[in-house]
């Protein structure tokens, strides 16, 4: 459970960080909490509309293409995207741990892998959006039928593009942040500071992006 602290430790008597976290990291947590509410609002409105609809398109019908293989592979491509994001989250943890150990070389290595993972995910998403767009799906346009063969409203595509787009934007900014971290690491900024806390904050953001994908993946592709 929570970190063990001696009972006589006076966290609130000044001179110490009462939450035992650095200011910037704590603020990153609160930012992420507010961001969680934004994503939560999106996903809950999606859920509300879905609950208020008599029918809904079948995700396995909509998302069944794989680049180079054609269609007929439900869940395959999105599984790939999910694993890419999980693996890039793992390399980010390793970068943070390398930062703890003041191991600059490993930080650089793992940050590069994380950036590659992020770019790979964005490329997958770009392909998927392009493919869906060619099929006639976009905001305000839904070529797919409901599961039972009745005509679907545009709610499905509107929510899909808005939410995956908002998530993709987060991935994009996460990649930018990681690239900045990489440049700072290479330039010895953190060595001079004496700690790699900045990598931890970037790491928190990156894991949050992965976390949101867990929810988006479940809500749009699985159920």
């Amino acid at each position: 459970m929570a970190q063990a602290v001696p009972a006589e430790q006076k966290w609130w008597s000044g001179g110490k960080s009462p939450f035992n976290v650095e200011y910037g990291k704590l603020m990153m947590w609160y930012f992420l909490m507010s961001d969680a509410f934004t994503f939560g609002a999106f996903l809950i409105s999606y859920g509300t509309i879905r609950f208020s609809s008599n029918n809904w398109p079948d995700p396995n019908e909509v998302f069944q293409s794989f680049p180079g293989l054609g269609s007929g592979y439900p869940l395959a491509f999105v599984s790939l995207m999910t694993f890419i994001l999980i693996i890039s989250s793992v390399t980010m943890v390793l970068a943070v741990q390398a930062g703890h150990a003041m191991d600059k070389k490993s930080v650089i290595k793992y940050l590069i892998w994380t950036i590659i993972g992020g770019l790979a995910f964005l490329s997958c998403q770009a392909w998927e959006w392009t493919h869906l767009h060619h099929e006639g799906a976009w905001w305000g346009s839904n070529p797919f039928l409901n599961m039972d063969g009745t005509k679907a409203s545009t709610n499905f595509t509107n929510f899909f593009f808005t939410i995956t787009g908002f998530h993709g934007f987060h991935v994009f900014s996460g990649v930018i942040i990681n690239i900045i971290m990489l440049i700072m690491t290479i330039n010895d900024v953190f060595e001079r500071r004496g700690h790699y806390l900045m990598i931890e904050k970037a790491g928190l953001y990156w894991h949050f992006v992965d976390l949101v994908w867990v929810f988006v993946f479940t809500c749009f592709y699985l159920i």
């Binding site: 459970m1 929570a2 970190q3 602290v5 966290w11 009462p18 939450f19 035992n20 976290v21 989250s89 793992v90 980010m92 943890v93 790491g203 928190l204 894991h207 949050f208 992965d210 976390l211």
Partner: peptide, 10 residues
């Protein structure tokens, strides 16, 4: 991954 489990309870 985000290490929250190892932070202080408060």
């Amino acid at each position: 991954f985000m290490h929250l489990k190892h932070e202080l309870r408060n």
